Amino acid sequence: MNGTCNYILTRMESAGLPYEAVFEEARQLGYLEADPTLDVGGIDASHKLAILSSIAFGTRIDFGAVEIEGIERVSIDDIRRAADMGYRIKLLGVAQMTPRGLEQRMAPCLVPAESPLGQLMGGTNMVVVEGDSVGQIVLRGAGAGEGPTASAVLSDVVEIARGVRMPVFGQPAAALQRAKPARTAVPAAYYMRLELQDKPGALAKVATVLGDAGISIDRMRQYGQHSDSSVPVLVVTHKTTPEAIDYAIEALPRTGVLVSDPVELRIEEV
């Protein structure tokens, strides 16, 4: 839902450039807000998600209930490792009504490279709607830069000038219902990147923490050393709960074998 983030992530992949270099490119192209955190921090996209949730479910906008994570932690290594497994990394916003309440989350995720979202390149946006009767509907269009932004604003001005009066949310705002907010609980597989000390027993300690959290490992890969004392390790889990992942991410640094903070990304099969 943010063309700037999609430009940065796809440019990192196609050019093999680090996040910082592509961030500066996006600034030079005029893709970034005056406060870049609104874009790369996922805030702009979360505003859009809250509005779309309101339209989709007839609920009042609740931006404070959106779980937000930006793309700042995504490295060129993550981009390459995801590609090795047939995935691409996208800033993905998901809203779904569950028996527990309305889930709203915005975070970078791995999606299949051949999926509609995986094929979305450059400063483009995409919205995927899933309905009981209509199935999946995919909408895509330009989402970053002065041209697309000016076009969207001018179209609103033209509608006002023509006297078009449609309810913004498909119904009067007073009719919108307050939804109970719910944290994400739907199980999913997760990608984890760990920088470990290159010493005996390090992997065993990681496996123990994951086992204690009830997380089953699907794949584990060790790549070439980053230095004489550390080595990158990639773990892909079987489906597990966000609570289990949170427990593991909090416990892993206490093992004493991590060189840097772990990075985890949800895998969405959309």
Rank of each mutant, 00 (worst) to 15 (best):
T149P: 00
V94D: 06
G3H: 02
D156P: 00
S75Q: 15
E114Q: 00
G41W: 14
A204L: 09
I79R: 02
Q222E: 14
A174Y: 05
A185E: 13
L176W: 09
R193F: 13
G123Q: 06
P187G: 13
Q119F: 06
G147A: 03
S227F: 00
R27A: 13
A144N: 05
K48F: 08
T241A: 10
L91P: 08
G118W: 00
H47A: 14
S230W: 02
E67S: 12
L32S: 04
C109S: 08
E159Q: 07
G101Y: 01
L265A: 08
L203R: 14
P148S: 09
G122H: 06
A213H: 05
Y31P: 04
L32P: 04
G122K: 14
A182V: 09
L92P: 04
Q222R: 12
M166H: 03
Y87F: 14
V129Y: 11
V186G: 06
A26C: 06
V263M: 06
I137L: 11
L9D: 09
G58V: 04
Q225C: 09
P253N: 05
C109G: 06
L91A: 12
E69I: 07
I71F: 07
L49V: 10
E130G: 13
G143H: 00
A202W: 07
M97T: 01
T4A: 11
Q225E: 12
Q197I: 15
V263I: 15
A26D: 05
V235C: 13
G141D: 11
V94E: 06
G211M: 01
D261F: 14
R88C: 07
N2I: 10
A83T: 10
V270D: 02
P116W: 00
V158M: 08
T255V: 04
G163Y: 00
R60F: 12
T124W: 03
Q222A: 12
V158C: 09
V168P: 00
E268H: 08
R100K: 07
I215H: 06
E195I: 06
S115Q: 00
T37H: 02
I55A: 10
G64Y: 01
S151C: 02
G93E: 04
R105P: 02
D84M: 12
N6T: 06
I89H: 04
E25Y: 02
A83Q: 10
E146H: 03
L52K: 12
R88K: 13
P200N: 06
Q171A: 12
G163I: 01
A207F: 05
D198K: 13
E130F: 13
T237Y: 01
A173L: 06
M126W: 02
T124K: 04
T237S: 08
A189R: 14
L32H: 03
R105H: 11
T4F: 13
G41D: 14
G122E: 09
E146K: 07
